[in-house]
Every structure is written in structure tokens, then in C-alpha cells.
């Protein structure tokens, strides 16, 4: 073969391998590993910038486990307030209740309208505040990550790199935060036993410990992972996982849903001078 002929073969070989590589790159779907290597823009202090208005898009507030569609509790509200089908956010779809606690969960579900703190516009607790069907805003500084929730004007602050000691039992917990590479890790304790995890009666005791992990997976989405520990209620820790999506309205604005006034009849209606009836 002539020298020219060998060069021609080499050129063709290189071109072919480049084409094959291109085809492979274009058809490869992003694996978890690639997702985890997204590097968010940085704040001035060099940390991943999670500032923004975020919201979950799922039916977890109805039921954090897989659920079929079913009739809602108020017949006149029909389809506007019945339960749509939804995939759960619990890893493995199993909540490891102790037997007595499982009975309490069922009792909660049976008396949902009377017992669910959401109906009363009570503070939603963590992690429910994250996946209620309303947005929330993160305002991040080196020392604080503040979460402002639309629902019930709820809020909490994660104090960065300090060990926070709860002084009282609270609805929203006492939170300490730290960075692990691209992930914001928040540990919370100091909960009371009054909030629920969803409208299906899933609940906890005041021994609850919540560990949350927020990781940007793209410019406009986070991966949110939660570990629930509560030895009074569950036989082992368990996890929830879901994406959170950025509000992209220009400008985006968080409006507060201060719902106390709408809960007053549910709570005090029987004490009115003249009872009110629904429209």
C-alpha cells in the first residue's frame, strides 16, 4: 500500500471513531452519576446558590405513599376536592410503623377533617411544608438559610455550621445546616407531636429527627431527600425523595397565604352567636 493510501485509511478511521463517539454521546441518557455532578452557580461566599422560589409538583400532601383516586370528604365539593391518584415519595413505598402507631395512623385518616392540622391553618411542620401545594422561598446567606412558606405564613431558619439546641417544642423544628460539596444538609429536632406528614394521617412523635438534603440537579431543579427518624413511632429510619422545581415567572414573587381567617369557622364556628353556613 502506498503511503498515501495508509494516511487515507487513518483519516477514515479517525473520522469513523469520532462519529461513533458523537452518536454515543447524543444517545446516552443522564445517569444519576451525571446528575450529581451538576455544579450550581456560586454565591459570593462560594457556596451553591439555592436562592429562589421553589415548589414540589406531586400529590405527596394528599398521601406520601402510592394511592388510588378516591372520593373527598365533602360531597358538594365533588371533583374539586377529591383525591387524585399519585405515586408516593416514600423510598420503597413502605412506612415502617410500629403496630400501635399504625392503628393511630388509620384513626387519623378516618377522622381526617377533624384532626388534620392543615384544615386549621396550623403550622405544617417539616418536611410537609416542603411539598404542600404552595411555593416557598429560600433566602441564603453564609450564616442563615431562611425558608419562607406561602402556606400559613410559616417560616424557619437553618443556622449554618452551629449546633442548635432546641429550647422548646416547636411546629417547624430547630434547624442546623452545613454544606457537603453540592448538598445543603439540614438537621432538625425540637418538634412537637402535632404536625402530620400528609392528609392521609401519617404522623410522628416529639422524638422526631429530620435530615434534609437539597442538591441542585440543574439550574431550575433540586433533588430533595429526607430521612425521618422517630423510634417512638417507626421501627427504623425511612426516606422520602422528590424533585423541587424553580418558579420561573419574571419576576417571581412569593405571596403569603395567611389562612387563619379561613380556619376560624372550622375551629370556633360552634361559639358564634349566629351560626354560619357554607355557601
Amino acid at each position: 500500500m502506498t503511503k498515501f493510501g495508509r494516511v487515507k485509511i487513518l483519516v477514515v478511521a479517525i473520522a469513523a471513531s469520532a462519529s461513533i463517539a458523537t452518536i454515543l454521546a447524543l444517545t446516552a441518557s443522564p445517569s444519576r452519576g451525571q446528575e450529581a455532578t451538576y455544579r450550581a452557580p456560586r454565591t459570593a461566599d462560594g457556596k451553591p446558590d439555592l436562592n429562589g422560589i421553589w415548589q414540589a409538583m406531586n400529590t405527596a400532601n394528599w398521601d406520601i405513599q402510592d394511592h388510588d383516586q378516591r372520593q373527598g370528604p365533602v360531597l358538594q365539593l365533588g371533583a374539586a376536592f377529591s383525591i387524585p391518584p399519585g405515586e408516593g415519595v416514600v423510598v420503597g413505598n413502605e412506612i415502617p410503623y410500629r403496630p400501635a402507631a399504625l392503628a393511630k395512623k388509620k384513626a387519623n385518616a378516618d377522622q381526617w377533617m377533624k384532626l388534620d392540622p392543615e384544615v386549621k391553618c396550623y403550622l405544617p411542620g417539616i418536611p410537609r411544608a416542603t411539598y404542600m401545594p404552595y411555593p416557598f422561598q429560600i433566602v441564603q446567606s453564609p450564616a442563615h438559610v431562611l425558608f419562607a412558606y406561602a402556606y400559613a405564613n410559616a417560616s424557619r431558619v437553618a443556622y449554618m455550621n452551629v449546633k442548635v439546641e432546641p429550647q422548646i417544642d416547636t411546629w417547624m423544628g430547630y434547624a442546623s445546616g452545613r454544606w457537603e460539596d453540592e448538598t445543603l444538609v439540614i438537621d432538625s429536632t425540637g418538634f412537637n407531636d402535632e404536625s402530620w406528614f400528609d392528609r392521609a394521617g401519617n404522623f410522628h412523635s416529639d422524638a422526631l429527627k429530620v435530615t434534609e438534603r437539597f442538591t441542585a440537579i440543574s439550574r431550575d431543579a433540586l433533588r430533595y431527600e429526607v430521612t425521618i427518624e422517630d423510634p417512638n413511632v417507626f421501627t427504623r429510619p425511612w426516606q422520602m425523595r422528590m424533585p423541587l422545581y424553580r418558579h420561573l415567572e419574571q419576576p417571581s414573587r412569593l405571596l403569603k397565604y395567611n389562612c387563619v381567617e379561613f380556619a376560624e369557622d372550622a375551629i370556633y364556628g360552634h361559639l358564634r352567636k349566629t351560626p354560619k353556613t357554607s355557601k
Binding site: 436562592n51 441564603q140 431562611l146 417560616s155
Partner: peptide, 21 residues
């Protein structure tokens, strides 16, 4: 609490995070 783009007036009574873009 403040970030580059937001200032927050976070009150105790009654837990109001006033967001100031």
C-alpha cells in the same frame, strides 16, 4: 437576613418573614 437580591425582616410575633426584593 440578607442575600444579594433579598432582604428579610423575620419577626417573632407572629412568625412573619417579610420578603424584600
Amino acid at each position: 437576613i440578607q442575600s444579594r437580591d433579598y432582604f428579610v425582616i423575620h419577626t417573632e410575633m407572629i412568625h412573619d418573614a417579610r420578603l424584600v426584593p
